[in-house]
């Protein structure tokens, strides 16, 4: 965690410096980021509480049988579908996915959940069908399901080779 904090701090500092040197808008960026954080705070708090509840409620046998590394294909299929129905933004989704991960879910399952959520989450349906047509959404859906599944499989293989 200390390593992650260091990397993020360096990235933040570098970006502030780049903006200060190139366009002088670093202050504006800080304000925009903090404003976004304040706006998202209730959602983050809510998601963290929900994630805590999920973590203490998921039965260990379910995780072991359906989501763990040993669950293999089952976990990847379930992960893709789970990602699809997670109709929320990143501030809400990541804490929930983190709770599933810390319950013992395998890497393949978690990658399938994130990929399924990124590409197919139901909250994209009204935007994509509304802006680009239902046919576009269907085309994207047809392509995205095998992609999510494939990403889960590759991550699962990664986990088996480099645990």
């Amino acid at each position: 965690m200390a390593q992650t904090n260091t990397i993020l701090s360096i990235a933040a500092l570098l970006l502030i410096l780049i903006n200060a040197k190139t366009n002088g808008r670093h202050g504006e960026g800080l304000k925009a980021g903090l404003k976004q954080m304040m706006r998202s705070a209730p959602l983050i708090v809510g998601a963290l509480i929900l994630a805590g509840m999920i973590e203490v409620l998921i039965p260990p046998e379910f995780v072991e049988g359906w989501l763990s590394k040993e669950a293999g294909l089952k976990g990847i299929i379930l992960g893709t579908l789970g990602g699809m129905i997670m109709a929320m933004g990143p501030y809400a989704s990541f804490p929930i996915i983190a709770s599933i991960l810390s319950s013992g879910a395998g890497l393949g399952t978690v990658v399938a959940i994130i990929t399924g959520w990124c590409l197919l989450s139901l909250n994209k349906l009204p935007f994509e069908s509304g802006f680009f047509g239902l046919k576009f959404y269907t085309y994207k859906l047809i392509l995205s399901i095998p992609f999510s599944f494939g990403a889960g499989l590759v991550a699962h293989a990664w986990d088996m080779i480099l645990p």
Partner: peptide, 11 residues
């Protein structure tokens, strides 16, 4: 994360 997000937005 939000500091980085804000900086990318203006960059």
């Amino acid at each position: 994360s939000f500091v980085i997000m804000g900086q990318i937005q203006v960059l």
